[in-house]
Computed example of a mutant assay.
Amino acid sequence: MAEIRAAAGKDAGAIAHVHVESWRTTYAGIVPEAYLASLNVAEREASWREWLTLDVDVFVAEVDGDVVGFVGGGAIREPVEEFDAELFAIYLLREAQRRGIGTALLRRLAVSLKARGFRSMVAWVLEDNSSGGFYSRSGAVRVASKEMEVGGVMLLVVAYGWVDLGMIGAGVW
C-alpha cells in the first residue's frame, strides 16, 4: 500500500511529473493533443514550488519511495452552493490507479480540511473524464456545471460535492 504524507518543497518535481503524466493519460481524446504535448514538467515544477508555499493542503502518495500520486485542496475559489472547501487536484500515475490510493488521498485531504474548520468540499471535473464514477462512489453528488477553456477548446466541467467532510474521513463508502 502507499504511504500518504504531507507534501514538502522537495516534492515539487515529483508532483509535477505525476501532474503532467496524468494529464496526458487521463485527458487523451478529451483535451487537444497539442495542448497535452505542450505540458512541461519543469514549468509545472516551478508552479508547484510556489503552490507548496500557499495556504493549501497537499499530500503525496509514495510507493517504494516514489511519488505516484497527489491531492491538493483548500478554501473554495468560486462559490458553489453551500460548499466551503475545494479539491483542487487529485492525480495518480496510471499504474497506481485502481489500488485504493486515490481513495486514501481523498480521505487524507478531507480529514485535514475538516481539522482546519471546513465543513464541505466540491471538485470540478471535466465531464468526459472517466473519473466521475470515483467521485460518485466516494459519496459526492453532481451539484453544478460550467464551461472552461482548455487548450483553446471550450469543455464542460461538472462540480461534484460532498456536503460533509466528516463522511469522507470516516470512510463511509
Rank of each mutant, 00 (worst) to 15 (best):
Y35C: 01
Y35G: 02
A37M: 01
A37S: 05
S38I: 14
V41P: 00
A42E: 15
E45A: 13
W48E: 04
W48F: 15
R49N: 11
L52E: 08
L54E: 12
L54Y: 11
D55A: 14
V56G: 03
D57V: 14
F59R: 06
A61T: 06
D64W: 10
G65K: 09
V67A: 03
V68A: 02
G69I: 13
F70N: 02
F70R: 01
V71W: 10
G72Y: 12
I76R: 05
I76V: 15
I76S: 05
E78I: 07
P79A: 15
E81V: 03
E82Q: 11
F83R: 03
E86H: 04
L87D: 05
A89I: 08
L93Q: 03
L93S: 03
L93H: 09
R94K: 11
E95N: 04
Q97F: 10
Q97I: 08
R99G: 01
R99H: 09
I101P: 00
G102D: 10
G102T: 07
L105R: 00
L106P: 00
L106T: 11
R107M: 04
R108H: 14
L109D: 03
A110Y: 13
V111F: 07
S112C: 03
K114W: 09
A115Y: 08
A115C: 01
R116E: 07
G117S: 10
F118C: 08
S120T: 04
M121C: 03
A123G: 01
A123F: 07
A123R: 02
L126Q: 03
E127I: 08
D128A: 15
N129G: 11
S130D: 14
G133E: 15
F134H: 12
F134I: 14
S136P: 00
S136E: 15
R137F: 12
R137L: 12
S138Y: 07
A140C: 08
V141P: 00
R142L: 13
A144F: 08
E147Y: 11
V150E: 02
G151V: 11
G152V: 09
G152S: 06
V153G: 01
V153W: 05
M154E: 07
M154R: 09
V158W: 06
Y160L: 03
Y160P: 00
G161P: 00
V163C: 00
D164T: 10
L165K: 01
